[in-house]
Design a protein around this nucleic acid. Structure first.
Lengths: 217, 217
DNA sequence: CAAGGAATCGGACACCGTGTCCGATTCGCT
DNA sequence: AGCGAATCGGACACGGTGTCCGATTCCTTG
């Protein structure tokens, strides 16, 4: 062969090294704020020179984006794994909350990160509607895929006659809001309760709301 | 009198100057991130020397806290103003959302600020239950008062037979989560819809949930 | 008006983190 | 052994923070 190492292999290696750094950065960013942790510290902890980090990431922000993207895929993987278990829309909803909580419990500072880093908050269903191209780079996708998940879930539920027929865009946004709120609060809770319980409670609330059962309708 | 200016007056003056700086800081922090805006800039914009800012605030963090506290009181004032209008629990709930949205629209970066600055996320009702002493300094109060508001609202609703009787702590937390999520999303929405509409939609969701009306119970 | 004190200015300072650069070194491959 | 790529490590400029202090302004009071 003319090339000593195929570009392909070289890239794999490169990704591996990148991941190595991202792992550390994610942990440190998680424990303390995204500020308060220096490049030096990340590099040292990852066992590389500071200058080497800058080979893989143009700057601090890009490293942060990489961390968020990793958490994102981690979340989606986790959700996909448990996704097929229950066929009932209600169960899927609960699964969704449980999966999200699992990620939060694993690295509670997820949100401080996500929120700090601009526009990751686009759990709005508009985004789905506006159909941001799947090639959209970076963080827009982070909430987008979840929004899509929610919208699918909701429409299934309506089709099955389990959910009220609302404007799907609005409904998706509302569920997303609840999800976001629940995540944020759990992320800030120093002593969160059991995951399944918490998910069940939130899920019940999302389904039936606040109003007394006999009161209305 | 022995004193040229009574300490009292001196303090008033001092507060006035402080507010002057906080006003500017809040705006700038709001427009761009809490990072990305230097003390120098704040000072200049406020028409004082950088060193003078450090007379009133020990450091950047303290200035940030002051900004958040100001927003907090602003929010509570706004809510209190419209609080008595509707006696019905449902109306009060809607008023709550509207009031919060109003603040958000006024300075959308409220949340990036609040969330970034640790533990402001304590909208958990546990906090109310644990009864954090009212003297608790700083940001713990920021969500606490709102939580108290929510809890009162909820208990009124239950007493009036309008809300389902749940564990008040849990119910408060859930409403708080929805509120938090709604705020966050609206804060990130580049083109938010009319306030009253948005509030009405969220409110309806909180009241009746997702499930079809005839489906369950 | 003159004197005095408090607040403010403005500029110097040390410190730290970022991002860039480059020569020296190590590592893997042939 | 020899080559090239990756890595090291340490220098650098830059910008922001927080501290300090002498000079200046403003207001009060005698």
């Amino acid at each position: 062969m003319s090339r000593k190492t195929p570009d392909q292999l070289r890239d794999v290696l490169r990704d591996f090294r990148r991941d190595q750094v991202v792992d550390v950065a994610r942990r440190l960013f998680g424990e303390r704020g995204s500020t308060d942790v220096s490049m030096e510290e990340i590099a040292t902890e990852a066992g590389v020179a500071r200058s080497t980090v800058y080979v893989y990431f143009a700057n601090r922000d890009e490293l942060l984006r990489a961390c968020l993207e990793r958490m994102h895929t981690q979340l989606l993987d986790g959700l996909a794994a448990a996704w097929e278990e229950g066929a009932e829309p209600e169960d899927r909803l609960r699964t969704l909350f449980e999966g999200v909580f699992e990620l939060i419990d694993d690295s509670p500072a997820f949100f401080r990160l996500a929120v700090t880093t601009e526009d990751a908050v686009a759990v709005t269903a508009d985004a789905v509607q506006r159909g941001a191209s799947p090639s959209t780079p970076g963080l827009a996708m982070i909430g987008l895929n979840i929004a899509r998940l929610i919208q699918d879930l909701y429409e299934e539920g309506v089709a099955a006659g389990r959910f009220r027929p609302l404007d799907p865009t609005v409904a998706t946004a509302l569920i997303g809001q609840m999800l976001f709120g629940a995540m944020s609060i759990r992320a800030g809770d120093p002593a969160p309760g059991p995951r399944d319980e918490a998910a069940a409670v939130v899920c019940d609330f999302v389904l039936h709301g606040l109003a007394g059962e006999g009161v209305r309708g």
